[in-house]
């Protein structure tokens, strides 16, 4: 089973990288970009039947730093 974990900064946590990317987009002439936040996507191949609880634990024990980050798990159909 393919699983994607999206890790993003919690709302309210300042994202200097997002701000720099925002400025760069404006510098390229793109209009109407209101805000940019930079996150991380982790793709994993896990055994079918891996429990949601195990996936959550992977996120909370390693993939995300719960002090500053949130995560979202997306399960993809087995190819």
């Amino acid at each position: 089973m393919k699983v994607r974990v999206f890790v993003s900064l919690k709302p309210g946590v300042l994202d200097p990288q997002g701000r720099a990317v925002h400025h760069a987009l404006e510098g390229l002439g793109f209009k109407g970009v209101e805000d940019v936040r930079v996150g991380r996507m982790i793709e994993m191949d896990v055994a079918d039947g891996t429990s949601d609880d195990a996936l959550r634990q992977m996120c909370e024990k390693l993939l995300a730093n719960m002090v500053i980050e949130n995560y979202r798990i997306e399960k993809l159909e087995t190819a």
Partner: peptide, 11 residues
Amino acid sequence: LPGALMRNAQL
């Protein structure tokens, strides 16, 4: 220790 160390604000 509590907290986290993030990218420097000035990058």
